[in-house]
Design a protein around this nucleic acid. Structure first.
Lengths: 153, 153
DNA sequence: CCCAGATAGTTGAGAAAGTCAATGATTGGT
DNA sequence: ACCAATCATTGACTTTCTCAACTATCTGGG
């Protein structure tokens, strides 16, 4: 085996869900980031842009909580996207402390192109799975990622 | 809903496997790290200790590749564990460039205690899943994490 | 109305993690 | 014996994470 991975696949660690999660995430986001590099985006910034483009009008706090990021990280992310004219910070009429993040036309355009790339990256990294398996995987991951607050709850 | 997560669960992002992987990983490793704090360990260092304790005698390069880390990160990890007397760097008789990492008695003791904690953390974070679902999840994750080089190949 | 306490966003500092190039020792092939 | 490749290590540098502070604003109780 020129492949040192093979040997350690028999370890108990290799069967640990937390470890597998970490490695799978590294693989997928690495691949996605590589494909997004041309757009000056990463999965992080793309996620913000994406959420800003579907009519939800998320506040920064909502982004922070949904993405699992510190509020200050969201500030940096939005600063960057706004500086490039991809999103806007709009006032929230109900709460003047809050800012609503919404994608601009340019943001929507870029998003559309970027999603083509990430879908390609996803197809590559999930190539070993059938369509059914992918659905199963996303279902299970949703439960883990949102502590049971899945669609059915 | 006091819970802002709920609203954004309907977004396309919420159905994206790469995003779910990132969030699920953040949840699980966050919980595990919290439980490991008392041992001055994190999932990273525990993984090294674990792999060093099962008779595989991994070299640092193997650790680096298996864990998906830069070799220099492994140096730091092993330095720390070795400095605390939990692992040793042994010469590889076949290749004197290489160092074999193996857990000490103290390392094995600590590992045993630490694994109790991580199992508890795992039970908590995967509480929403049945045993069958957990098996399915680890199977699918293995394929993603190791690009198809799973047990059966 | 006014106050107290909580919350949204922002800033800045410091720790941890990730990336990359260079180096010395060693290996294997020719 | 030589040369390219490999392993571990170091150091520099960037990115990401985590926290504490601060301002502006909201909410609920008197």
């Amino acid at each position: 085996m020129t492949d040192p991975l093979h040997r350690l696949l028999g370890s108990d660690l290799a069967a640990d869900p937390a470890f597998l999660l970490a490695r799978a995430r590294a693989v997928t986001s690495g691949a996605a980031n590589a494909r997004l590099a041309g757009f000056q985006l990463k999965v992080r910034s793309l996620s913000v842009l994406w959420l800003a483009s579907q009519g939800f009008g998320p506040s920064q706090r909502e982004l922070s909580e949904f993405l699992g990021l510190d509020p200050s990280q969201v500030v940096a992310l939005v600063d960057d996207l706004q500086g490039r004219g991809l999103v806007e910070r709009r006032p929230d009429e109900r709460d003047r402390r809050s800012r609503i993040i919404v994608a601009t036309e340019a943001g929507l355009d870029l998003l559309e192109q970027a999603l083509v790339e990430t879908r390609a990256a996803g197809d590559a990294t999930f190539a070993g799975l059938t369509d059914d398996e992918r659905k199963t995987l996303t279902g299970l991951l949703t439960k883990v990622a949102f502590g049971g607050r899945a669609a059915g709850d």
